[in-house]
């Protein structure tokens, strides 16, 4: 990202918000509307399709709950990493980032187990709108988790080679929190109601 550093002069922030953070928020706002469109269509399908509850019962809510807790804790560790960067305790930053990545991988592994369990029972994406939306939304969310893990991994690598990338920890943290917030809405939508 060196081309960014060389172009922006010190007064390159007319609004006082560092450009990477502003760009991340702009990107997240377009993501909100993307997931909004998907979840919106899901809610509307739910209203017009009476067999929804019957299929919803076959979803493994135990794994879902563990996943939610895993993502919540990973949100905590990534924001602690951001705090540690400001306190210049770079060893703690690496540890927290590593925990975040591990929790993310745990989420994906549990998701894999869950999918294979359901498909094994014959509930594939073609079974009906419930399963189509279930695999669609949680699949897209899992992809976002994967991208989040890669982002955090890059930041961890840069931090391990002591490049002190302060703003990257914050931005990958922002993205990770967004992925967690989406899961906060997806979890009750499919697993609890």
């Amino acid at each position: 990202m060196s081309s960014y550093a060389e172009i922006t002069r010190e007064d390159g922030e007319s609004t006082g918000i560092p450009s990477p953070r502003l760009a991340m928020w702009v990107f997240l706002s377009s993501e909100i509307v993307l997931f909004g469109g998907l979840i919106g269509s899901c809610i509307l399908f739910r209203l017009t399709y009476e067999k929804w509850a019957e299929y919803a019962a076959h979803v493994n809510s135990m794994i879902g709950s563990i996943n939610t807790l895993a993502l919540l804790t990973s949100s905590l560790t990534v924001v602690l990493a951001h705090k540690m960067v400001q306190n210049r305790n770079y060893k703690a930053v690496n540890i927290f980032l590593a925990i975040t990545i591990l929790l993310g991988l745990l989420f994906l592994v549990l998701k894999g187990i869950e999918y294979s369990g359901e498909i094994h029972h014959g509930y594939t994406i073609l079974k009906g709108p419930f399963w189509a939306f279930y695999f669609g939304i949680t699949g897209l969310h899992a992809l976002h988790v994967l991208v989040g893990i890669i982002l955090n991994a890059i930041v961890l690598m840069l931090s391990l080679r002591n490049k002190r990338p302060q703003s990257f920890v914050e931005n990958s943290g922002l993205y990770w929190h967004f992925v967690d917030v989406v899961w906060i809405f997806v979890f009750p939508l499919f697993y609890l109601s």
């Binding site: 006082g16 918000i17 953070r21 502003l22 997240l28 909004g36 469109g37």
Partner: peptide
């Protein structure tokens, strides 16, 4: 700042609108 907060609030209202 307000700019960023509006970047979050506006898409949410659009979601409710949709």
């Amino acid at each position: 700042k307000v700019v960023v907060i509006s970047l979050v609030v506006v898409p949410l209202t659009l979601f409710i609108l949709l």
